[in-house]
Computed example of a mutant assay.
Amino acid sequence: MRAAMVVMLIVMPSVLLTSGSDDSAQIIALVAIFAALFTIVEYSASSPSLVEFRDAPPFNRVRFSALFATVLCLSVIFRGDAAPSAMTQFFQTSGTRVGETIDFPYSPVRLMLLMMPEDTSPMALAQLRDAAGLSYVISLFSIIWFVLLLRLQHWPRRGGAFNVWINLPTFDPTAGGDVVKRLMRDGRINIILGFLLPFLIPAVLKIAMNFGAPIRLVEPQTLIWTVSAWAFLPASIMMRGVALARVAQMIHLQRKRAYERAAAEGLLAA
């Protein structure tokens, strides 16, 4: 089921939109196959590899749902240009209102618009504004939803054991230093980075364009994936920071209970 959902996510823009060549369709199909194989291997293997919090739902489910919703909404919006309907009109109107609301000075959406070349058409800028605004709102809601689930479901344990090795395969607890302090430090860094990335990414792209790497977000599929990545990556990093801080808090509480239990049983020196 996970592999099937990943395939649906990757092929969704090319299926809903009529634009695109046969070569791009073949590349998308190849990427979807590799992503499905990676998902199957990653979640069926007994030892961890790259995916964090594999056995601590709904962390990955919230992240995937946010990306899926973003790609779906943007695909429906651009489908309205070729095959308009009541649904596409609803998404286009919603995107326009959200984009106009968030498009204020120094906002991430305004920075995305300023990134574009000066000769960009007003229609292309309006499409970018609507897509960026809607994507950014979805990413914010995903962060809020994850924090609510964290509080309501007592994540990550939810009544069971939490295996740090399985759920944090890239974290080495023996690398040196206190584990709790390292997790809290990494969590704070991820939260700060997730907050700053929506502002930094347009600046980095603008610098790259000035050095001879033009970015033309005219093709709908390119715009969909670029804007989705711009909104999803910071939200994902921020959720990871919140999750690391929660794991550090859990380990700290477990240590505190263990010390209190040992002191009550007289196992600690006075």
Rank of each mutant, 00 (worst) to 15 (best):
R182E: 08
M184Y: 12
R185K: 10
D186L: 13
D186H: 10
D186A: 11
R188V: 11
R188F: 12
I189N: 09
I189E: 04
N190A: 12
N190T: 04
N190M: 06
N190H: 09
I191T: 06
I192W: 10
G194T: 07
G194N: 06
F195L: 11
F195E: 07
F195Q: 07
L196M: 10
L196V: 10
L196Y: 11
L196G: 04
L197C: 04
L200N: 04
L200A: 14
I201Q: 00
V204L: 15
L205W: 07
K206Q: 14
K206R: 14
K206L: 11
I207D: 13
I207L: 15
A208W: 13
M209Y: 09
M209D: 13
M209H: 12
N210K: 14
N210P: 01
F211V: 15
F211I: 14
A213I: 11
P214S: 12
P214Q: 08
I215K: 09
L217Q: 07
E219Q: 12
P220F: 07
P220Y: 08
Q221N: 12
L223K: 10
I224G: 02
I224P: 02
W225F: 11
W225N: 04
V227A: 00
V227T: 09
S228G: 11
A229T: 04
A231T: 01
F232C: 00
F232P: 03
F232K: 00
L233I: 13
L233Q: 05
L233K: 00
L233M: 11
P234M: 10
A235K: 02
A235W: 03
A235F: 03
I237A: 03
I237W: 07
M238F: 13
M238T: 04
M238W: 09
G241H: 00
G241K: 01
G241I: 01
V242A: 02
V242E: 00
V242D: 02
A243W: 02
A243P: 02
A243N: 02
A245T: 09
A245M: 15
R246F: 04
V247W: 03
V247I: 11
